[in-house]
Amino acid sequence: MKRAGFTTRWLPILLLLPQLIIIAIFFYWPAAHAVQSSFYLQDPFGFGSTFVGVDNYKDLAGSGEYMKIARFTLVFTTLVTFFSLALALLLAVKADKVLRGARSYRTLLMWVYAVAPPVAGFIGLIMFDQSWGPLTELARSMGWDFKLGVNFNDTAVAMVIVSVWKQVPVNFIFFLSGLQSIPKAVREAALIDNRSATGRFWQVTFPLLAPTGFFLLIINITYALFDTFGIVDTLVKGEPGNNPMTLVYKVYVDGFRGNDLGGSSAQSVVLMVLVLALTIFQFRLVERRIHYT
């Protein structure tokens, strides 16, 4: 087979250049800048900066508050990822079986996708409003005095609920299309081979959904770590003091409220390394066990 190629050397470079420039300016340059400033102590008023070596990192490692936020982020990410995947899978499996009015049913499940995170946070504020939020009243009717923005745990619960609610539609769409791409005959063969619907789901459907699930796992962890910023910001707006926050929100709070650019840069470098490690771990360990058809 003849391979298509370029006759000149500069043409492929020219064609790649816009993409390379975008990556360099918007990804590598800020990342490099963050790494660099994580070794400096910036003057809060922007008059200069002092090289302090790894002091910013030492401060982080010694900070009990930072560790507490890291633990919360871990729990938050785990809960959001688990519940948004599990709920979406449940809804997708059920929606896949709907025969009549399937289209409108699916649309109804999808449209939260169009809500922006800060708006989702704002809807959360309304739902959990102290005096007239319907979800606050529901909690109260069950004897739970729900206090958004006051009680650490209550605020955390609201954050998880709103984040999950926002993410379920995306997962739902992917799971549904994943389910529909499983050959009909394979499911029918399973129907003849196994009388238990639960058994069929876990032994045939679920393994065949694994590529979709793996992709969504990465997307959801990334979402819970980073994209929930808008939701966290809306829910704890004004008084981050006693409220739960994620590592990303902490970067923002320290950098732009506390004017500690060096410390916040060190935090973002830590996050960068974390994501890198996570990605390598996932591809090395998880993906190997997954069957791609």
Binding site: P183, A185, V186, E188, A189, A190, L191, I192, D193, N194, R195, V204, P207, L208, A210, H291, T293
Partner: peptide, 20 residues
Amino acid sequence: VDPADRDIAMVFQNYALYPH
């Protein structure tokens, strides 16, 4: 009766093997 309880076996056009 459920397909699994009919005591039948079926061979499909595109084989329908479990790929995993």
